[in-house]
Amino acid sequence: MAFNSPPVLTAWASIVGPREGDGPWGHDFDWIMEDYLFGEQTWEKAESKMLRETVKHAISKRNFEPADVELLVAGDLLNQLVSSNFAARELSIPFLGLYGACSTMAESLIVSSMLMDGGFFAKTVAAACSHHYTAERQFRFPTEQGVQKAPSSQWTATAAGAVLLESIGVGPRITAATIGKVVDMGQKDASDMGSAMAPAAADTIKTHFQDLNLPTDYYDLVVTGDLGKVGMALAQQLFVRDGLTPQPNYSDCGVLLFDESQEVFSGGSGCGCSACVLCGPLLKKMLAGDFKRLLFVATGALMSPTSSFQGESIPGIAHAVAIEN
């Protein structure tokens, strides 16, 4: 879908954990937390505070108050969306909670953009967050347990990102978007989400180019959310299979967020991974004019520990958002 009156990204903010701050893009985030508790008693409270502070920070960049914002669209990985709900409790902005696993950032951008293009709102915030330790304890093992990770596993990023969208303003615009289908290629390995999500990403990207009838080198950068090294390699193979030529200039937020030496195996993951890379380095580079057209494709693995234990495969989803200067 293409937007008639493209919403403008007038401000954005990102908060990341210490480990993400040590990564190659440490300078491009607004706020690097000193520890994973962020001055709170529990990791869940810390995650909620991260989202709240990121939203506040993005709004304050335009000298607005939270009360000036008409709608907050946000999501996270936790059961019943507690981080987002509790953040919205403090902010008291009208709120829509979304769950798209790690694809939430693109989903929140799309929902906000559609509501704005439809004329319902003029100022909205789209946001997403994740926390390594809350995700670990919900999806995997207790954090102090000595377990060995597979080389295809990924490190859930501790990060949050928020974008302030306005119907009139100066900045990059959201010109088009593609809502993805749930694609399941029968992958079952919960320590290899990249392989589960890559087909969804490839499908959405292909559909996006077909729908809008664009040449595949139209974008200066096509970036997927959190496929990691394994998923990224697979996605590139799928581009070849689908005949996407010339190959789009392609990368992945999960691969970008961390250094080789940071022991994150295949790369970063989580809603916060794509959210902070978008709201940190990517939009900063767009503002500086390093690239003009960006296709942001956040990817999600739609599984729960229960579905995995019951032998279900892992369906993937991907949503694409085109951001142009």
Binding site: M185, V230, A233
Partner: peptide
């Protein structure tokens, strides 16, 4: 087909 591709790309544990 996809499974074959995954097995080719996926790093093996050492």
């Amino acid at each position: 087909e996809y499974e074959t591709l995954v097995q080719r790309v996926k790093p093996k544990p050492p």
